[in-house]
Simulated assay, not measured.
Amino acid sequence: MALLRMDNVGIVVDDLDAAIAFFEELGLVLDGRGEVEGDWVDRTVGLTGVHCAFAMLKMPDGRGRLELAKYHSPAAVGMTPPNPPHNTLGMHRVMFAVDDIDDTIARLRRHGAELLDGVGEFDGGFRLCYLRGPAGIILALAQQT
């Protein structure tokens, strides 16, 4: 048995179109949209009565993907507490390498992104920041200097 690849990271959002626009602004490319429902979906995700719209976005080089999902039923469950801090247990951050962190922050702010604090310097070789995006997602950006 061999691990072949990490296929995608999935994120549940409350506004699919806004989340698509946010990640397209970041530079991901919409690869497809669809909806799923039925017994096979219920069995796969462990819920009953699933009706879910989704969008698959890919990195410009095609090597990584992000799946966004909007649950029409059952309704999505909110985070407790809302917008948890970075040290909350569980997966809650996706990091992207960018060529211009300041430009990227400015573009994402037009889509509602908010810096958690500011841009930091790591080991003299990287500028890093965390910002909150759609559905409370923490997005990390890294620019090699």
Rank of each mutant, 00 (worst) to 15 (best):
F122A: 14
M59E: 12
L26H: 02
H72K: 10
H86M: 14
P60Y: 03
D42C: 00
E25T: 11
I105C: 03
T145M: 14
P74H: 02
L57S: 03
G27I: 01
G133F: 07
D102K: 11
D61K: 03
A113L: 06
L57G: 05
N8D: 07
S73I: 03
L141S: 02
L4Y: 08
I138P: 03
T44W: 01
M56R: 13
Q144L: 12
T104Y: 05
D14P: 05
A75N: 09
D42L: 00
L108W: 03
L141A: 06
M91S: 14
F54G: 01
I101A: 09
N87F: 15
D42Q: 00
E67W: 08
G32T: 02
M56G: 04
G46M: 00
R109L: 08
T80I: 11
N83L: 15
K58V: 12
A2M: 13
A142N: 12
R5G: 05
R43S: 00
M59N: 06
L128C: 12
I11D: 01
D15S: 06
V45K: 00
M1T: 14
A69G: 12
A75W: 07
G124Q: 05
H92W: 10
N83G: 08
A2I: 14
M59H: 07
P82V: 12
V50S: 01
V119R: 02
W40R: 05
M95E: 13
E35M: 07
L115N: 05
A106H: 10
L16Q: 00
L66I: 02
R65Q: 14
H72E: 09
L30P: 04
A2V: 15
Q144H: 10
A142T: 12
D99P: 02
L66K: 04
A2F: 10
R132Y: 12
K70A: 11
H92T: 08
G136C: 10
V12Y: 10
G64C: 14
D123Y: 15
L28S: 04
L47I: 02
L68R: 01
G133H: 07
I105K: 09
G125S: 14
I20Y: 04
D61M: 03
I137L: 15
P81I: 14
V98S: 04
L108F: 07
A142H: 07
L141H: 08
F126T: 13
T44G: 02
H51F: 10
P81N: 04
G125C: 15
M59R: 05
Q143E: 09
D14S: 08
R93E: 15
R132E: 06
S73D: 08
G125A: 15
C52Y: 05
N8R: 07
R5P: 00
T80G: 06
L47N: 02
D99Q: 11
A19W: 03
M1S: 12
D17G: 06
V50H: 01
H92V: 10
M95G: 15
R63T: 14
L28A: 00
D15F: 06
P82Y: 08
E114A: 11
G46W: 00
V98D: 05
V45C: 03
T80F: 12
D100K: 11
I20K: 00
H86D: 09
V13Q: 00
A106R: 15
M59C: 10
L3R: 07
R43Y: 00
